[in-house]
């Protein structure tokens, strides 16, 4: 089943309230996905010469300060960091590949949840409400956010199978549905250099978009190609550094509803998740059409 939700702020004055607005949206989709939940929040953008990593360690007592010091020395650069539960956000004055290589060589027990200029992904097994509290979602700021509540069908209830999936810098995807050609497509994308961490079908969709964007496609072009290539049923919500998109497969059997006001654009699997947004009573509320790409991007 699964529930997906997204919120993109048009009014910058609301950015300090992003997490507060989004928390009830994610919790409202508990019935559709009680197994695990996660979200990707975009904001707190780093400088051009810096890369931001969201890192996870199983232990709450992990010494992130020591890792940051070692990484700063090892890469001969500056590392700023903060901890949120058993996750840490590292801001490193280096390129993404150097940080990835350093972590692989020196901290193999660390799991990378996201990398980019703006994105931070937080996800965990358990009820959505538990996860929002654990990471204090309500206190988070940013420009846009997408989230997922999972009812596992295709793979086990694990951290690895939890959404959102990120396969490239600042790109993230949440999926309600099931893909049928993901195995072959994963192999093709691996040959193109896309790296996958799981056997999950949704990660392949994220990987496909990453690859198309690397080839120079705009987000719209990448999604047009995805509509032709991905076989199965899906409603996707996609986040990029400056954009937010929603697309449904041609049959459109997986639900989606959208709402737009002067302040925001929101999407959810069900209207219940939108009902707590300010001004929703007078918002334009509609069901996105199959095969139509809905996209909002900041300059």
């Amino acid at each position: 089943m699964c529930g997906i939700v997204g919120l993109y702020l048009k009014n910058k004055a609301l950015e300090s309230k992003l997490g507060e607005l989004f928390t009830p949206m994610l919790i409202a989709m508990t019935e559709r996905g009680p197994d695990s939940a996660g979200f990707a929040v975009y904001g707190d953008e780093v400088e051009q010469d810096t890369i931001k990593f969201t890192l996870l360690h199983e232990s709450m007592d992990y010494d992130w300060g020591q890792l940051a010091d070692q990484m700063a020395a090892g890469l001969d650069t500056q590392v700023d960091w903060f901890q949120n539960s058993n996750v840490a956000v590292f801001k490193v004055k280096a390129d993404a590949a150097s940080v990835t290589d350093y972590l692989a060589a020196h901290a193999a027990d660390i799991k990378v949840l996201s990398a980019g200029k703006s994105i931070e992904i937080l996800k965990e097994v358990g009820l959505p409400e538990k996860i929002t509290k654990k990471f204090n979602l309500a206190g988070m700021k940013g420009s846009h956010i997408i989230g997922h509540t999972r009812m596992a069908t295709e793979s086990a209830v694990t951290m690895q199978g939890s959404h959102p999936f990120s396969t490239g810098e600042d790109l993230c995807l949440v999926h309600n549905g099931s893909l049928s050609n993901h195995n072959r497509l994963r192999e093709e994308l691996k040959r193109e250099g896309v790296v996958f961490a799981t056997e999950n079908d949704s990660e392949v969709a994220a990987g496909y978009l990453t690859w198309r964007l690397q080839q120079g496609d705009s987000l719209t072009q990448a999604l047009q190609s995805a509509l032709k290539t991905l076989d199965g049923f899906y409603t996707f919500t996609i986040g990029t550094r400056n954009g937010f998109a929603v697309v449904r497969d041609p049959i459109a059997c997986k639900p989606a509803v959208m709402a737009e006001t002067d302040d925001y654009v929101a999407m959810a699997s069900e209207y219940q998740a939108l009902s707590t947004l300010p001004g929703i009573e007078n918002a334009r509320v509609w069901e996105p059409e199959p095969e139509k790409i809905y996209i909002w991007e900041r300059d």
Binding site: A252, P255, V257, V285, W286, E287
Partner: peptide, 9 residues
Amino acid sequence: VRVKGDASQ
């Protein structure tokens, strides 16, 4: 049954 707005699928 009358829906004043839109109806889903």
